[in-house]
């Protein structure tokens, strides 16, 4: 059946199913209680009964079976997901966002208290430095 799709159609189908697979696996992990724990600035909750979780996981398993069948039928190949590149990109984005959080830049959100800079800016500067340090660490090829 692989020859029923042209290259663009194959790419579209593969991308859509890959995103769906990732969503399904993320949901399945949460339903098992993996990655649900809270952080400093967010709390996560998943208020479902054991029966609801089991039923949801059953639906996810059926959906993954369908994706398996489609991948087999149309010979869809897995894509490489480079997590190092993903982390680096996130750190670069965070660095950009942090640059808008210095007291001087917060003027765009209203009058800035003159005491804000000395109390906020050192923390923002440190977070920016750490984001770039992590990004730079991952830029280098693995060291033996």
């Amino acid at each position: 059946m692989a020859d029923l799709l042209n290259e663009s159609q194959r790419r579209m189908l593969t991308s859509t199913l890959m995103l769906h697979e990732k969503d399904l696996r993320q949901a399945d992990a949460w339903l098992q209680g993996i990655g649900v724990e809270g952080g400093i600035l967010y709390h996560r909750t998943l208020r479902l009964s054991a029966e609801q979780r089991a039923a949801a996981r059953q639906v996810i398993a059926q959906a993954l079976e369908q994706i398996t069948e489609l991948a087999r039928r149309f010979d869809l190949r897995p894509k490489e997901d480079n997590l190092v590149a993903a982390i680096r990109a996130q750190m670069q984005l965070d660095w950009c966002d942090l640059s808008e959080m210095y007291a001087n830049a917060l003027k765009s959100c209203g009058t800035v208290d003159p005491l804000l800079g000395p109390s906020l800016d050192p923390g923002i500067a440190e977070l920016s430095r750490l984001a770039m340090t992590l990004e730079h660490l991952l830029t280098n090829e693995p060291r033996k």
Binding site: M18, E21, L41, L76, P78, K79, L83, D97, L127
Partner: peptide, 30 residues
């Protein structure tokens, strides 16, 4: 902004010690 950065950091924290993960249509490598 800090919340987004925290989420990114915790995601990276979870990925760092892990092995490669192979799904049906993706292969995650670190």
């Amino acid at each position: 902004v800090l919340r987004m950065m925290e989420e990114h950091l915790r995601q990276a924290q979870a990925w760092l010690p892990g092995a490669d993960e192979t799904g049906l249509l993706y292969h995650r490598s670190l």
